[in-house]
């Protein structure tokens, strides 16, 4: 479904991605890991057609995504409907005057009947358990609520691929748990998920496969999540964790304890 071959990107001379190649099939769920600034966010923007590779090729469902093609409004709209992007900072994703309008924005654009739009908005509200926020202004919600509204507004488009940039940052532990199980539900519903995260516990729960970025903006490893999390040397080498890190295989639960040295 998503295919990058030998993609590089740099911001005014500073490399952000170097020769990245990867394939993501329909229905997969993939976690992107790597220290801050290793290129995860850039990759997500590239996948969503906000940025375009300096060199290399990005294909979505066999179709090459280029700046020129995205200039064609119909093509780009179809593309954006099929792949949804939830930003890291929900603040910068909400621009409507109330939550209902925010979620209805996409369905209305798609020209759905108002009754169908209403159904979608209500479904999204209940799916994220934010029915009570229906008439609130997004701007004044708490961080977690904003995140949920942002997710609902993307979900209402019913995209095939959902891309999340650091979805757990800034959420309290309970919201984090809720979110992990929500992602699992989405995956079970057949959605393709791409999630960048620093939360290693979450990786093995939601993702079958994990991709680890190196400091020098290349892919250091791309394998089943379980085996990657056990490779402590590699995680230390890519500066993602320090020597105190340890992994509990098969741990599907949140745990809390202290390790003296």
């Amino acid at each position: 479904m998503i295919e990058l071959s030998d993609v590089s990107y740099s911001y005014e001379g500073t490399a952000a991605l170097r020769n990245v190649s990867l394939r993501i099939e329909k229905g997969e769920s993939v976690a992107l890991m790597g220290m801050n600034g290793s290129g995860k966010s850039t990759l997500l923007k590239l996948i969503n057609g906000i940025l375009f590779p300096d060199s290399g090729v990005y294909r979505f469902c066999g179709e090459e995504i280029t700046h020129k093609k995205m200039q064609d409004p119909l093509f780009s709209k179809r593309f954006h409907q099929r792949i949804g992007f939830v930003f890291q900072n929900a603040d910068t994703q909400l621009f409507c005057a109330d939550v209902y309008d925010e979620i209805a924005f996409g369905p209305r654009q798609m020209g759905l009947e108002e009754s169908e739009t209403e159904k979608r908005v209500e479904d999204c509200l209940s799916l994220l358990s934010i029915e009570a926020l229906r008439h609130r202004q997004p701007y004044h919600l708490s961080g977690g609520e904003k995140r949920k509204v942002a997710i609902a507004s993307v979900l209402a488009l019913n995209p095939e691929v959902l891309v999340f940039d650091e979805p757990l940052v800034g959420l309290d532990p309970r919201a984090q748990r809720w979110f992990v199980s929500f992602l699992m539900k989405l995956h079970a519903a057949g959605k393709t998920l791409i999630v960048s995260t620093h939360n290693l516990e979450m990786v093995q729960e939601i993702a079958g496969r994990a991709i680890l970025f190196d400091e020098n903006h290349t892919i250091a490893a791309d394998r089943p999540a379980e085996s990657l999390l056990e490779d402590v040397d590699l995680l230390i080498q890519t500066n993602l964790v320090d020597e105190y890190y340890h992994h509990h295989p098969g741990a599907g639960h949140q745990h809390f304890h202290i390790h003296p040295f």
């Binding site: 709209k77 954006h80 910068t92 621009f95 409507c96 654009q109 798609m110 020209g111």
Partner: peptide, 22 residues
Amino acid sequence: SLPLLYALRLRSVGKNNRKYAS
């Protein structure tokens, strides 16, 4: 506001009859 504009564009998947409002 750049991401806000990006967000608006990513979700502009059809016909927007209320461009000024957005």
